[in-house]
Design a protein around this nucleic acid. Structure first.
Lengths: 111, 111
DNA sequence: TAATCATATCGAACTTTTTAAATTTGAGGT
DNA sequence: ACCTCAAATTTAAAAAGTTCGATATGATTA
């Protein structure tokens, strides 16, 4: 149940084209924030905000080195998210309506 | 590039706990809107709105039968979304920054 | 220890999303 | 034809998200 909390945050993070592109860029390997900034027509503060969201949902890790911050993907969250996605989209997955008939009663509390 | 358009819509749809739960419920098989409504503490109009979003992004299909509307998952979009996710999270995927150095220039136009 | 550079945070404007009540539509049933 | 029921749409209000300029922080450099 608390999985919904965790992974809808990840999906929300990917629900923005720029953030999805940033993830794509990072799939090639670690990048400095300034490198990412060069690729986009956004302000530095906006990028910082996006990176914060990506880090908070666990999809991205940040690492400080002197003045710079290097970002890279978090393989574990990626693996888990793919698993969660499979879980909710296949009958073999968690399938809450089978497990617990009253599962959705409190669903508005976790947002 | 237009993939970002398409799949960030899917992720946005899943970026809401209730909608993710609805998808989970539908993974067990087709359900009538009224059945889904019973599970949630939301109004009929709100559910209708959520179902519209889920259909518009391609994740869910609707089918009318008399007064009722039956919803089911769209296997094709699910498969494609998983592929897209793998694409942007693995170095073997699309990796826009390798393919096109100026790929992100116009990224704010597609939202 | 100032100045500078890379990021982060704050504050405010603007846009989008979420939600529900009220209404409409469209299909049966009486 | 009229009534009823399921679902969609409209409307409006509140909540959340996006963006950027200005400012703060914190590390290197002169």
């Amino acid at each position: 149940m608390e999985n919904y909390l965790k992974y809808t945050k990840v999906f929300k993070a990917l629900g923005d084209a720029k953030r999805a592109m940033i993830v794509d860029m990072l799939s090639c390997g670690e990048l400095c924030a300034c490198m990412i900034l060069e690729k986009f027509k956004i302000s530095q503060s906006t990028l910082s905000h996006h990176m914060k969201l990506l880090c908070e949902c666990g999809l991205v890790k940040g690492r400080n080195e002197g003045k710079w911050t290097y970002y890279s993907l978090n393989a574990e969250t990626i693996r888990e998210t793919e698993q969660f996605f499979r879980g909710i989209t296949s009958a073999k997955g968690s399938c809450i309506c089978k497990e617990d008939a009253d599962c959705c009663e409190g669903c508005d509390q976790d947002e």
